[in-house]
Structure formats: structure tokens, C-alpha cells
Design a protein around this nucleic acid. Structure first.
Length: 789
RNA sequence: GGUCCUAUAGUCUAUCGGUAGAACACCUCGUUUACACCGAGGAAGGCAAGGUUCGACUCCUUGUAGGACCACCA
């Protein structure tokens, strides 16, 4: 394709290039490479919906990184993963096919999930290909950098293998604890899956009695249905109103239970009436309180969200109905002094939107509390871009209070490879994929009792084994993405050579999940930090600055922008709009369309430069040397910034170079010398101009290549340069004086202004202009460029 | 409540303590051997109050506004 035949940069051109790139696997990883390896632990996008422009832009940034590192001589691993496990797929399958796992059975439900996954369009991959993302491969397989799926047996068996090892080491245990329970999805969830929402609720002021004095006390609560689980009534020790109640006994309304009254500084004098009922299922801090006070927790809510026998007359009712009923009862008995509407910050399940309940259930836990300091230490060895992002991780580490509950009572996820018989637990062997609910344990599987090995399955004849039906939290598989990428447990030699991974790029909102869990899991497997660098991106927002989200309905479809403006305009815009690791980027179509102009400018400049043959190296004139020095210096600064994941400042400067320095001034000045039709200049001088035109422009193409690889490589192709294989230019020391170029620009502007004011056409001659002293060295060029007399 | 970030032209965004610079939009003029998706020119800007300094958009304090993260709200 010759650029001379092209009028404008357009999406038909792009299609030809990206189609070719996608099928030809140009960036295949060479397993025998002697080069240093640069590996990018790409976030695997969730496949239930096509990616939106915000996500798409983050992959453009990763592509900048990958292409730059290839130029710097690294063998790059930049895999495309597809995240297919977990609740979003299950919920979509329920909706699409009207199936229910509880009604239709596990096998049928899993089939429905698989069917949905097949139907899920390949639109995301198509978007990546059209954007020119240089993934190591667009094909599935076992080669390094191949497309991987988190629900494939190959992936799941590694997830299970890590589970098995951790279990055997005693780092995973089962415990019957109070957990965050999602009543809608019927599963336990982790703290990190909870979000808080302000929900209007009613503060009920309920009358209690004091046994010893018979006086009435009023306690405010949003959860009157939990009065039955109250274990203690507390007030603040500084609160004079209640001082006399210390050690006395409260009688709960309706239930008439005797409950001790004590002072405790967790009670807030300002809130409600200052006197509080402590229930064993309000939230996690209540649970902690019960532990500290050595109180026996009473759980009044069943796993299906109904009240149990502890709730007495409320038994069998759903939580909300129970609340209404008890309020009515209190009203009837005149035990409700008043009600107040408040907004209450309520824990909500991030996945289903249901209000979290706290319910006691046996679940598997992965130990994490005892590794917090180790994680802090390895995190200290990792470079964060930007530096500030480290704090988000630190804050999260500080707030981890319990081990990680890793079992889920769901279906489309990695099964837990265990079989149970009474107190005995049989464990699968690592290296196989297991679905225990439909398989039997093999004879040589190890058997554990209370965390200790007691033999193998074959030793216990005639025992009936039940396959574990629970599955793993999907973060258990996402958190080994870098291990999978580097062939952990499948190619030991390669893993040893390539671990730790070089870069984890990801969003700030999943630092406490994906990043933290990966650090933990990597540490448990290898005792090392699993990354050298972590690059944290902010958000792409809509025009108004709001974060894009499906629920808000403000998502922009990348396919639409690709059709209108093409990939190169989007990528150029993404680099020039701001530094995504430092600030949110507002997605504005106007700005993207403006970058199309720059692409056309590049084409036109290419056409002009190509009017002249590039002479072999010759002696440069003063002016040409000055501009060559300038771009050598710009090369150095660009290299430094790219190396620190900053593509923004170089992109700005390179664009300025193109428009303001190269096109508007350098070309205008040397045009006549390059043509040299009237032989005003020597052959040598003319060749110097021609050489420099090519040199500057080629360098521009090389430096811009990671950002806009299509247009730059097409133009470079015409010049016999393959940018996909091109090395980043060596850094040359210069004595470049920035000042002089600014002076020249100023001089040119003044002459143009002068001619305009005097009504002289730009090409006609003008009298009486003096060339400033410091520009004497460039006199000939300036006289000729402006036709000075 | 805690921690942190940001505040510059109509919009968006730069700038080592020394004349505030682009882009988009707007206005005027122009067609010049690559480009009218162009060229030249123009109008238009530092949140507020203090402080440090010869000098502050830049550093400090406070306030105001917006945003982020964390914790908690019986």
C-alpha cells in the first residue's frame, strides 16, 4: 500500500491492516528467545457483555507498553484472557433461559451457562483486533501467550492444584462462622464484595424496662426484628443519663428476656437515645463485640432469609415481614414511643444488590491474617505507577480483619476438589480437573481428619464419600492469572526463567481484590513478589465526568467510535487527553474526531517528504543540524517517559513537533532549498535538506509507533522500514539549544505578520527585514524562505 | 469521621518561583510548488483570603467547591 495514493487516513485502510495483524500472529512469543522477557498480566475481560470504551482505552495503553518494550529489545508476553467464571454468567443464564439451579438441577444449569457463553458474541475480541491491540496471540492453545479462558479444564485444574497444595499445608480450613450472606444468590460472600449504599430506613424508638428499678428506657433501632438476639444493652461510660443503670438488668419488650446493662465506650452519646441494644447479627462489629464480651451469639435468621426459632413469634417470616410485624406488635402494646426516618448506610452485595445478612455457616477459609506483614514487605519491592496507588493497597491491608472465605454455594465456577465422609476429607491429586459432585474419589487420594493426614481413600473400605458441591470464589482463579501466563506447574523451566511477571496493569477499583489476592496467592506459591511493576489506571468518564457504567446507561460503544473515527484516532486521543494513571479521562467525541486531523497531517507530511529521494549521509548545514539535535533530544526524553509508563507527555510533545515545529517551520524554511529549482543553493546544501526531512520524519514515525502503530508502519513500509521490528533509536548526546528553534519560530511569525499587514503575498519579496544576530548562522535559509531583500 | 487528590480561557488541558502555552469551539483575513480535515491573525484564563519571597499559577496555611479511597453509623 503506497501512501501517495491515499487522500485521507480512513477506516477501510485500518481494516486491511488489522485484519492482517489478527490472523498473521506477528507477535508470537519465541520460547527459545535469548532476549529478556517482558510479561504483561493483562486483565481478562469478563465476557458476559462486550467491553465499553472505558475498558477498551485501558487496553490501548497496555498496547503502548507492549509495543514500546518490543522496540526496546524485550520478548513480550501480552496475553488475551477471557474471564468466564462466576455469578454474572450465572445470572445472565438464569435470565436468558429461565433456568434456576435450585429447581432444574446443577447439570442442566451448567449446560445453560455454557450455552450462553457460546452465544456471547466475539465482539470484545473483534474490538481488540480493530484497535490494533498486539496480543501475543489471538488463538487458543497451550503456547505461551495464547488466548486463555478461566473456565477451561486446563485453567481450572491449576486453580484446583493450588487449592490442593494449600489445603495439604493446612492453610485452608473449614470453620462455622458468621458470614456475609447474600440471601438472593444464596451464598456467602467476602468483605471485598460488599458495597455500602444509603438506604432510607426507619429508626424505631422502643420502650424497654429495667428489672431492678422498673423504670422505662428507650432504645432506638433500625432492626427491631433482632431484639430477640440482643445479648447486652450498653451506654457510654461518660453518659450521665444512664450511669445508675450500670450492672442492672434490662427486660426486652415482647420477648421479656433479661439482658445485662453495661457501660461501653463504643456507645455513642449522640446517636439515638444514647443507649444501644447489641445484637449478634447486626453487622461484623457486633460480632466482634460478642466475642470480646464472651457472649453466646444467637442467630435468628435462616439461610433463606427467614426468621428461625430464636425469633419466637416471628419464626418463619422473611426478615422484612418480621420487621413489619414486630413494629405492629410494639405499636399495639404501646411499646413504640416514636419513629424517625433516617438514611442508613447498608451493606449491599455488589453482585446482586441484595442487603447482606449475617448468618452462621460452615465455609472454607484461606489464611491471610498471618501473612499481612509478608504481603506488605513484598509489596514494598514492587514499583507502583503512579506512586500514590500504593496507599490504596496499604489501606486495604490495614483493614483486613478475618481470613478469606473462599467457598461459594454457587455453580459455574471452579469446583472444590474434595470428598467428604463424616469427619474425613479426601483430597484430589494436583494436576487433574475434578467435578466432585459427579465423580468418586480415587483410591490413592489422601485423606485428612482435622487437618491431619490419616491415610488414603483405599484404607477406608466401605466408606461412602460425598463429593463437595461448593465451588471457589472466582477471585481464587483470577488471582493466579500471572502464574498461568508464565506456565506455573506446566513448564517449570520456563516458569523459573520468567517469574516474576513484569507488569500488572489494572484499575484502581480492584486493588483490594485482584491485586491484593494475586499478591497473596503469588506469595503463598513462591514467597516472592509476583510483579516488578504495577500500573494503576483511573477511569474513563462520560462527557460530564461521571464514571461509565451499564446501570447508569452512559456507556459508549467502542465499535461505534471505531466506525466513525477509527482506531488510530482513538489511540492518539487516549494518549493525548491525559495520563490515565494520574487522572480520569473524559470521553469526548469532538476530541477524538479532532485527532483525525493529525492523522491526515501525518499523511500529507509523508507525501511531501516522499517528493524527494533520501540521499545517503552527507554534511549537514547549521539549520539542519539544529533540528536533528532537537529530535535527538526529544528521543531521549520520550524514551525516559515511555519507560515510566508515561505516554502522555511525549505524545503531546510529538504532536507539537509535527504541527508547530516540523510542518509549520522546518518544512517552510527548507522547502526552496530542497527543491533548489533556481540553483540558489549548492547540491550539498540541498541534499542536506532532503536528508534531514527524511531523518526527522522517520524519527517521528518511530517515536509515535507505539501509540499509532498502523499509520506509522504503513508510511514507514513505503520507505523500506518495518516498524514492527524496528529497534528504539539509540540515544545520542547533543549540544542542542532549545532557544534557537523558538527564536526561528518567532522570526518566521513576525515576517508572516509583516507581509500580511503590508498586503504582500507570502511568496513575494519583502524589504527591510533584519535577521537577528543569533540567527545569522541560518541566514541563507531564512532569506530564501521568506524571499527577503 | 479518617486519609488523599484536584481547582488555570466557553470546554478541555500544559507550564523547574521569573512575560501563562496548546487543542476544540468562536471571530477576521487568506488559497502559498504536502495538506481547506489547510494557512495567518484575533478575542478570551490562574476559586477565595492570608503567609513565605525582590518576585507566587507554581511553595505554605485556612476556607470554599468537586472527586477518590477507607472506616463507621445501634
Amino acid at each position: 500500500m503506497a501512501i501517495a495514493d491515499v487522500k485521507n487516513w480512513n477506516i477501510e485502510l485500518e481494516k486491511k491492516i488489522t485484519d492482517k495483524w489478527k490472523v498473521s500472529e506477528l507477535f508470537k512469543f519465541d520460547i527459545k528467545t535469548k532476549k529478556k522477557i517482558y510479561s504483561i498480566d493483562t486483565p481478562p475481560p469478563y465476557v458476559n457483555a462486550p467491553i465499553h470504551i472505558g475498558q477498551a482505552i485501558t487496553y490501548c495503553y497496555m498496547d503502548f507498553f507492549a509495543r514500546y518494550r518490543r522496540m526496546k529489545g524485550f520478548e513480550v508476553i501480552f496475553p488475551l484472557g477471557l474471564d468466564r467464571n462466576g455469578l454474572p454468567i450465572e445470572m445472565a443464564a438464569e435470565k436468558a433461559f429461565g433456568v434456576s439451579p435450585f429447581r432444574d438441577g446443577r447439570d442442566k444449569f451448567i449446560e445453560a451457562c455454557k450455552k450462553l457463553l457460546e452465544q456471547t458474541s466475539s465482539e470484545t475480541q473483534d474490538t481488540f483486533a480493530k484497535l490494533g491491540i498486539s496480543f501475543t496471540s489471538y488463538k487458543e492453545g497451550n503456547h505461551v501467550g495464547a488466548v486463555y479462558k478461566t473456565d477451561s479444564p486446563d485453567y481450572r485444574k491449576i486453580t484446583q492444584a493450588t487449592f490442593i497444595e494449600l489445603f495439604r499445608k493446612g492453610l485452608i480450613y473449614e470453620d462455622n462462622r458468621i458470614n456475609n450472606w447474600d440471601p438472593k444468590l444464596q451464598t456467602t460472600i467476602a468483605d471485598s464484595e460488599i458495597e455500602y449504599k444509603d438506604i432510607p430506613s426507619t429508626f424505631n424508638f422502643v420502650k424497654w424496662k429495667v428489672k431492678e428499678t422498673g423504670e422505662e428506657i428507650i432504645i432506638a433501632t433500625t432492626r427491631p426484628e433482632l431484639i430477640c438476639t440482643c445479648g447486652m444493652v450498653i451506654f457510654n461510660p461518660t453518659d450521665k443519663r444512664y450511669k445508675h443503670l450500670e450492672g442492672k438488668t434490662a427486660i426486652s419488650p415482647i420477648f421479656n428476656k433479661e439482658i445485662p446493662i453495661k457501660s461501653n465506650k463504643t456507645a455513642d452519646v449522640e446517636k439515638g437515645t444514647g443507649i444501644v441494644m447489641m445484637c449478634s447479627a447486626g453487622d461484623l462489629s457486633d460480632i466482634q463485640f460478642f466475642r470480646e464480651q464472651n457472649l453466646e451469639p444467637k442467630i435468628a435468621i435462616n439461610i433463606d432469609g427467614t426468621m428461625n426459632e430464636h425469633a419466637g413469634i416471628l419464626e418463619g417470616l422473611k426478615v422484612k415481614d418480621a420487621r413489619n410485624k414486630i413494629i405492629e406488635l410494639l405499636k399495639e402494646k404501646k411499646l413504640l414511643s416514636r419513629q424517625e426516618q433516617i438514611t442508613h448506610r447498608t451493606p449491599i452485595s455488589e453482585r446482586s444488590g441484595a442487603e447482606i445478612e449475617f448468618i452462621q455457616m460452615p465455609e472454607f477459609y484461606l489464611k491471610q491474617i498471618e501473612f499481612k506483614d509478608d504481603i506488605r514487605k513484598i509489596a514494598d519491592k514492587i514499583n507502583f505507577f503512579p506512586k500514590e496507588a500504593r496507599k490504596i493497597l496499604d489501606d486495604w491491608l490495614d483493614s483486613i480483619k478475618i481470613d478469606w472465605p473462599i467457598s461459594r454455594r454457587r455453580f459455574y465456577a471452579t469446583p472444590i476438589p474434595l470428598w467428604i465422609s463424616g469427619e474425613l476429607i479426601a483430597v484430589g491429586k494436583s494436576g487433574e480437573y475434578y467435578e466432585p459432585w459427579k465423580e468418586s474419589p480415587k483410591k490413592d487420594f489422601e485423606v485428612f481428619k482435622n487437618g491431619k493426614k490419616t491415610g488414603v481413600v483405599g484404607d477406608f473400605k466401605d466408606l461412602k464419600w460425598e463429593g463437595e458441591t461448593r465451588v471457589l470464589d472466582t477471585w481464587m482463579d483470577s488471582s493466579i492469572s500471572e502464574l498461568i501466563m508464565l506456565k506455573y506447574k506446566t513448564d517449570d523451566e520456563f516458569f523459573k526463567k520468567s517469574y516474576p511477571a513484569t507488569l500488572r496493569p489494572q484499575g484502581k477499583e480492584i486493588i483490594r481484590t485482584w491485586l491484593y489476592y494475586t499478591l497473596l496467592r503469588g506469595y503463598l506459591e513462591t514467597k516472592k513478589p509476583c510483579f516488578k511493576d504495577v500500573w494503576i489506571n483511573q477511569h474513563i468518564t462520560d462527557k460530564q465526568g461521571y464514571k461509565m457504567s451499564k446501570s447508569k446507561g452512559n456507556v459508549v460503544d467502542p465499535q461505534k467510535l471505531l466506525k466513525l473515527y477509527g482506531a488510530e484516532a482513538i489511540r492518539l486521543w487516549a494518549s493525548i487527553e491525559g495520563d490515565l494513571s494520574k487522572q480520569d479521562l473524559k470521553c469526548s467525541e469532538e476530541k477524538i474526531s479532532a485527532e483525525v486531523k493529525t492523522l491526515n497531517k501525518i499523511i500529507n507530511v509523508a507525501k511531501f517528504v516522499n517528493l524527494f529521494e533520501k540521499p545517503s549521509r552527507i554534511k549537514l548545514t547549521n539549520l539542519d543540524k539544529l533540528f536533528v539535535d532537537y529530535i535527538e533530544d526529544l528521543t531521549k526524553r520520550t524514551d525516559e517517559s515511555y519507560g515510566n509508563y508515561d505516554f502522555y507527555h511525549p505524545a503531546l510533545e510529538l504532536r507539537r513537533f509535527l504541527w508547530e515545529i516540523f510542518a509549520s517551520h522546518y518544512i517552510e524554511i527548507v522547502k526552496s532549498r530542497a527543491y533548489n529549482q533556481e540553483n540558489k543553493f549548492s547540491k550539498e546544501e540541498s541534499n542536506s535538506a532532503r536528508y534531514t526531512l527524511h531523518y526527522l520524519f522517520e524519527r517521528f514515525l518511530v517515536l509515535m509507533y507505539p501509540i499509532i502503530p498502523q499509520i506509522t508502519s504503513v508510511i514507514a513500509d513505503d520507505k523500506g522500514i518495518n516498524l514492527l521490528k524496528e529497534k528504539f533509536p539509540a540515544i545520542v548526546k547533543t549540544k542542542y539549544e532549545f532557544n534557537l528553534i523558538e527564536k526561528i519560530i518567532e522570526f518566521n511569525s513576525n515576517v508572516w505578520k509583516d507581509k500580511k499587514e503590508k498586503g504582500i503575498s507570502l511568496r513575494n519579496e519583502i524589504e527591510g527585514i533584519k535577521i537577528p544576530k543569533e540567527l545569522k548562522a541560518f541566514e541563507n535559509d531564512l532569506i530564501s524562505a521568506h524571499n527577503l531583500k
